[in-house]
Structures are given as structure tokens and as C-alpha cells.
Amino acid sequence: MKLLIHGRNLDVTPAIREYTETKLGRAITHFEGMVKEADVHLSVARNPRVPQQTVEVTVYANGTVIRAQEHSDNLYASIDLAANKLHRQLNRYHDRLKDHHHSPGHRATPTPGTEQVVDEQVVEGALTDGKEPQLPNRGVRRKYFAMPAMALDDAVLQLELIDHDFYVFRDADSGQIQVVYRRNHGGFGLIQTRES
């Protein structure tokens, strides 16, 4: 498994690197066949009055992104918390795959390969022809990503794995963009478009 460790507002010492590798190695040890790469971001708050030390781990398992983020007053404690959370999420993902494969009459949909997602059309000319460079609005961060169609159950699983409040996906049946979100009082909600 490829493990990348980055530090923000701190130097990643050999001791921190070794501790992180050991803890994440234990968390991932049963899933080494699935996990190909892990990206770890260690950060310390700049304000000395806010003793917040954050660990964010992103794991790529069979084309699925699994993310765990934890913070505390101590970097080593944050690493422990993130490793435990990652282990639980990998267990949930593994169990879901196992249940998905063994349920009668149901097959898991494989993650499409790059050649299926990439459009085969040839681009004529440069993509920047006729466009002036512009900075985005202050405070707006743009992200672009491929959005293969998936069922609502798969979107809920992705939401649980990435540890966010919402997940945007393309519905496999209708082809529409939808948002599944975590409700404050438990459970999930779905935002769909409606024709006016």
C-alpha cells in the first residue's frame, strides 16, 4: 500500500511518520487487498490559543473513496482516533460488499474504468480559445469530478464512507443529479429536482 503523509503548520518528524504508519497499518491490515493508497494530512491550528491538531485520512479502496477526520488537543490522540474511525469504516464497507455479493438476485455494480468514463470525442482546438482568464469569486472553491450513475443505496454508502454531511450523485434510473444528506435527527434525506 502506498502511504503519503503531509504536514500543515508542522514538520513531519520521523517519530510522527513512524507512529502514523504503524497505526494506519494496523487499521488497514485486514483490508490490504482492497486498499491501494492512503493520503494522510496532519495539521496544527495556527492560533496557539486553539490547541487543535487534526488528522485527515483519505483511502482509495477498489475505486471507492473512504475518509476519516478527527481532531483533538494532541496529535498522537488524533492519529489514534482517525485510525479507529478508518478501521470501522473499512469494516462497514467490507461487510456491505460481502452482503451485496451474497444477496440473492442482486449483483454489485462494478466501478467503471477510466476508459468507460472518458469521452471518446476528439477536442478540436484549444479549450481556452476565446476565453479570458478569471479568478473565481472570493470564498468559492470549485471541484470537478466524474459522476457515474448509481443507486440511492450506493449513494448512502458513499455518504457514510466519506464522512460528510451530503453526497451529490447521478441517479441510475432517472439520470438526474440528486443530493443525499444526513438529517439532524437521524436518518437520511434526498433532494431531487422537480419539473415546474
Rank of each mutant, 00 (worst) to 15 (best):
S174F: 01
D129T: 10
D165N: 14
V180R: 06
R107W: 03
P148A: 01
D171T: 02
L135H: 05
Q116I: 03
M147Y: 00
V179Q: 02
H100V: 05
A172I: 13
A149E: 12
E132D: 13
T111K: 11
A155P: 07
K131L: 15
P104H: 14
D163M: 06
P104M: 11
A108I: 09
M147K: 06
S174K: 00
L157I: 08
K131G: 00
F169L: 05
M147V: 10
V122F: 08
A146T: 07
D163T: 05
R141C: 02
V168E: 08
V117L: 15
H102I: 03
V122Y: 06
V122P: 08
N137T: 10
F169I: 04
Q178Y: 00
A108W: 09
E132P: 00
D129K: 04
A108L: 13
S174M: 03
H100Y: 11
D119H: 13
E132I: 11
Q176F: 06
Y144N: 06
Q178K: 15
D154V: 04
G105W: 02
T111R: 11
L152Y: 11
G130D: 05
R138P: 03
V180S: 04
A108C: 02
D173W: 00
H106L: 10
L161V: 01
Y181T: 11
Y144G: 04
T111I: 15
